[in-house]
Design a protein around this nucleic acid. Structure first.
Lengths: 190, 190
DNA sequence: AGTTTTATTTAACAAATGTTAAGTGCTTAA
DNA sequence: TTAAGCACTTAACATTTGTTAAATAAAACT
């Protein structure tokens, strides 16, 4: 059940039995149906999720339109971070693109783990470092690459995602309009 | 001398006298002239810098061209993070746009502080969290905003930067070509 | 099965940005 | 002080992406 999470964690730190037990007492697994919301707009994000199954998207309402900033890959962490770190109402919304199984930990519990086990604080830092590096990679990609190359790269990196995620979200993620993505898909000769 | 750094740190954690002393023993201040390189391509980044004075840029060689991904604002941290965290040769280069005064700490010393003082590990996590949030903000901006709006936003947030940083770097940062930025600047009616 | 909603495509035209090639003015260095 | 390089601008044309409005396809619902 926790295999995916443990594999993920072990990339960053070595967990022993105690660390695991401390964690298991503080997590819960929840199930979301398609379009269910994990973090609502205006809510103070006090939970973080590991996507054990399914895809979440992070978006916000921009002039009446939903803008999807992120589609979480399988086996990764997601929360509305600006709200989570500053405990202010979230402008970001997180909802389930597909059916999801999430391993969830509350902010308080996470803070407890951070404060009690230095290893946890380290884990948190390492994970966020990786997320930051990935985020910078995406910025390079916006600066130097055409939408077509970004699309091809996405296909290669997450082939499953294209199967399960509607193109309108993919288009947002790539920074272009749905119609442009459609045109682009047509023009690609493989 | 360390005022700016201490102010920055105190946004995130409360430092006492011991924390400060532990730090002061492990930092050094260096001076860079314009165009001096702080992290070379291929080097393993083992230092992180706080920009006490001046502007750094983070770039890499992309098909014969230098692509500037980041211009560090005053009083912020900079390193070639992918190299720094994984200790692999850096594809990113960091150099001084203007004369710079940097407060520098070595990776080993930082690791020592992380391991010895939980507060430091927390500080590291908090800082990187903020950097990540800022990075996500920039991604939203690439997705939803035109280059003109991104330019105006930059002007407003860092008015000094435009004075001291050549437009070619600003253009890269905004994700457009120098000539497009020039055209855009002309067409703005304030 | 039939109806409604959602997903995706298509097309014509508009707007934004890129490309190439010059030009101007400013700074730097022999 | 002149020559060289750098920073920035300009302009014409090309390409990419956006916009609007439909059409078709697929999925979800009753």
């Amino acid at each position: 059940m926790l295999d995916n999470l443990l594999n993920f964690i072990n990339q960053f730190v070595d967990f022993n039995q105690n660390d695991l037990i401390a964690m298991q007492e503080r997590i819960e697994t929840i199930h979301l149906n398609k379009n269910d919301i994990f973090i609502h707009e205006g809510e103070i994000a006090d939970r973080i999720a590991f996507t054990n199954k399914g895809y979440l998207r992070v978006y916000y309402n921009h002039e009446g339109e939903e803008i999807t900033r992120d589609i979480t890959p399988l086996h990764s962490f997601a929360t509305a971070l600006p709200s989570f770190v500053s405990q202010t109402p979230s402008f970001e919304i997180i909802s389930a693109i597909t059916e999801c199984e999430l391993i969830v930990i509350k902010r308080n519990d996470l803070e407890f783990l951070y404060s009690t086990f230095p290893k946890w604080e380290r884990l948190g830092r390492r994970i966020i470092e990786e997320m930051f590096v990935e985020s910078q990679r995406r910025i390079y990609s916006f600066i130097t690459e055409t939408a077509e190359i970004r699309y091809k790269r996405l296909l290669k990196q997450y082939p499953d995602m294209i199967r399960d995620v509607p193109l309108k979200y993919i288009a947002d993620f790539l920074g272009i309009k749905l119609q442009s993505l459609s045109r682009l898909r047509k023009s690609i000769d493989w």
